[in-house]
Design a protein around this nucleic acid. Structure first.
Lengths: 250, 250
DNA sequence: CGTTAATTTGAGACCATTCAATTTCGGTGG
DNA sequence: CCACCGAAATTGAATGGTCTCAAATTAACG
């Protein structure tokens, strides 16, 4: 019983999207699973794999990633607790990208068949899964815009705005300070820039008094300014609450 | 009856993904709809709208797009017949991007409630919708990689490879020649390049004997070469058939 | 056959990259 | 607790890919 409160992050994420009945919630928390921990940069899943289990992030962070022939790496998304690393792969059959752990993280491994059956039986659950997928897709779309059309300053500012709102929504921040142990190299891989230029751009943002980014935590010093620089509009996150909270900041 | 064969592109797309029963197929073709035509660059849906109808592309092409504050435009995806322009918006409630017609196109407008009810009632249909969404998301992910990490030559080559395979899969090509009336400006907006540089890059690809791109149609002269230049791997399209066909080309 | 859209060309400027070296930070063992 | 180590962050200088701006040419269309 109380064991299964480990799956609370999942119920939390889903109940933000849809109305879950008491029975829905019970069924979610009763899902069978085993726990697993991942070291920094350890793979949760690899491109080409055909998983039979679903990996749900419980603690820590992860990122989706693809590697080019020339060795270059592009980060495609960041994952926060309560999100699945490989739901797509479990539905489509084959993973089309890699997922790596951002820091030391912990995940629940749930048998694929059980999870998909739950969706089949419970309309609210499958609506939640459906919606989570759609929001994930929306975020990636915005990344295409970010990486395709914004200069380095706006690109990084935009990404930091997104991270702030999503962490806020995940309950992992106090409105201005966020625990997000990302390296500049990972930031570079997420924005399509080089580590060197990422470093210089971060310095500029700091110099302008917009942020404070020390290893492990991100502090937003001037939310409205950062938003302005990043050409940021939170509509694409489909997550009203957290955005409003940050907007009301000084 | 025969009227409703207009929805055949939808049944076709879906049946590529899942096994549709006869009854499923009947139910799909019996969906109520009205037809609408769109001029080049006309909007099928706009960011911020809260649609009550679903727009299914029947003939012609369309593209997803976002506009920046500074006026820049980034194309996020191309749509082929049989795909929905605004299914996400209908599930999430609000459109988070724009969809424009690539050329003169035709669409079926289906009441949202009816379509979602069909998904609720027919497991195969909702699996097809689910899968279509996931594949769409996979494609956008690859676009992040394309725009974020590849140089202009690889970027355009990769995009052309994708277009070729998807058109092949949609039955709109003979293996090497495809009817795809895209302008260089649209190609530029899709790759995150300027029209000028897109033009120069296309010239390079032509000079190397890889493609022939005249207004309105794309001809692949050297598939394997183009694939090589574009660092292209079709796994992310989750569409085995069409890729294999092209691979077997000279 | 005129008119507008689309493509093509040229030259200079700039943003981001590359390559290499240095400094700082975080963690670990003595 | 300090010395050490590897990882991460920072700095410098030169190169280069892509952009900008503008103009010319070609193609599409009524």
């Amino acid at each position: 019983m109380s064991e299964n409160l480990h799956l609370a992050p999942l119920a939390r994420t889903w109940s933000k999207r849809v109305q879950l009945s008491h029975a829905d919630r019970e069924a979610i928390l009763a899902l069978p699973f085993r726990r697993e921990t991942f070291a920094k940069d350890e793979y949760l899943i690899r491109e080409g794999q055909q998983p039979t289990e679903c990996t749900l992030l419980l603690r820590g962070f992860a990122y989706r990633q693809k590697v080019l022939r020339d060795g270059g790496r592009q980060i495609i998304a960041f994952l926060v607790p309560g999100e699945f690393a490989d739901l797509q792969a479990n539905v489509l059959g084959t993973a089309d990208h890699n997922v790596q752990s951002l820091n030391r993280s912990e995940a629940a491994i749930i048998p694929r068949a059980v999870l998909l059956e739950l969706a089949e039986v419970r309309p609210a659950v499958r609506r939640a899964m459906w919606i989570e997928t759609l929001i994930g897709a929306s975020i990636v779309r915005e990344w295409v815009v970010n990486v395709g059309r914004r200069d380095s300053r706006a690109r990084i500012a935009h990404l930091l705005c997104e991270i702030a709102i999503r962490l806020q929504g995940a309950g992992a921040g106090d409105g201005a300070m966020f625990d997000f142990p990302v390296t500049q190299e990972q930031l570079a891989d997420a924005t399509g820039l080089t580590p060197v230029h990422t470093n210089r751009t971060l310095q500029a943002l700091r110099r302008e008094g917009l942020i404070q980014l020390t290893s492990g935590s991100l502090k937003i010093l001037n939310w409205h300014g950062l938003r302005e620089v990043g050409d940021f509009d939170d509509l694409y996150l489909h997550q009203d609450g957290a955005a409003k909270q940050l907007d009301s900041l000084r």
